[in-house]
């Protein structure tokens, strides 16, 4: 089977970690990494590993547009619209890892199947990727009237972009809790913890359901979902059994990263790149399937 060719735009930490994850994918082939800084560690590593690189950002990619079908944008919200317009106009699919969110949100185990033909999809936030699957798992058993998530990440894994725009995290995540998770009302809280050694990413989901009495089914659904997420984030786990009291449910998640480019405590960064790779991988498989159907 021929693999789907992809490129990474942005040679910072996220872009570099993506490179390692894509290498392990069975349906994707990384061909090119684009950045702006000739001295960046990411571009140097990409070159060492034999990928075509450019320091001309999106324009550099466009010079080799036959080299890829999908692009991961790991730059910034400010640049994303510009990048996306150029890439989608020539028929490339764009996976947005910035907070720009101009395309629909995607959370792999929840709504990936509905987004096959979208030119641009957005990966929400790290807190969204870690918690929305659980909210969906509860909501598919019993409607969730309110869901709130608390993401605690180590200070050293919160980059300058997150820090300068912390409201973007809370607002985007709350929005996706409703749109993708299915909760009628969503809220998100983020906490930075500077402890040394750095703490693993922790996510707590507090949800209120519309009726009592479905505890067994809800627990079952949550556990199934944890396994689904573990398929692409092996370090995703529940620390404690969920707490259920009446209509209120709290689920406690810990995310240990794979340790590709980031240290393992940066589960928040890891879950973004893992989810993005998962999305691209599944979209590529779907493309192959529809191509097969086409030749019948």
């Amino acid at each position: 089977m021929s693999k789907c060719k992809v490129a990474i735009l942005g040679s910072g930490n996220i872009g570099t970690d993506l490179m390692y994850k894509i290498e392990r994918s069975d349906a994707l082939e990384l061909t090119m990494v684009a950045g702006v800084d000739p001295d960046s560690k990411g571009l140097r590593l990409a070159k060492e590993r034999g990928y075509l690189t450019t320091i001309k950002s999106v324009d550099g990619l466009l010079e080799y547009s036959d080299n890829f079908e999908m692009v991961f944008d790991a730059t910034s919200a400010k640049m994303h619209q510009f990048h996306s317009d150029k890439l989608t106009s020539i028929g490339k699919q764009v996976l947005d890892l910035t907070p720009a969110a101009i395309g629909p949100f995607v959370v792999p185990p929840v709504n990936l199947n509905q987004l096959q033909t979208e030119p641009n999809v957005n990966l929400v936030t790290c807190g969204g990727q870690a918690t929305i699957p659980i909210i969906h798992a509860i909501n598919r058993v019993c409607p969730v009237s309110y869901a709130e998530i608390v993401a605690t990440i180590s200070s050293s894994s919160a980059g300058p972009g997150t820090r300068a725009n912390i409201d973007e995290f809370t607002e985007t995540t709350a929005n996706a809790i409703e749109k993708v998770g299915g909760a009628k009302k969503g809220k998100a809280i983020i906490i930075l913890n500077p402890a040394e050694p750095p703490v693993l990413m922790r996510d707590t989901i507090h949800a209120t359901v519309e009726e009592e009495g479905k505890e067994v089914e809800i627990l079952h659904s949550i556990k199934d979902m944890v396994k689904e997420v573990q398929a692409y984030v092996p370090g995703y786990r529940m620390n404690t059994e969920p707490q259920i009291s009446g209509k209120e449910i709290s689920v406690f998640i810990e995310v240990e990263g794979a340790g590709d480019f980031f240290p393992t405590y940066s589960g928040n960064l890891d879950i973004m790149t893992a989810a993005a790779t998962r999305v691209a991988n599944q979209l590529a498989l779907q493309r192959t399937d529809s191509a097969k159907e086409g030749v019948k």
């Binding site: 605690t152 809280i189 906490i191 500077p194 922790r202």
Partner: peptide, 8 residues
């Protein structure tokens, strides 16, 4: 070394 807000 829990910080403020980590009631969970």
């Amino acid at each position: 070394q829990a910080v403020g807000g980590q009631e969970d």
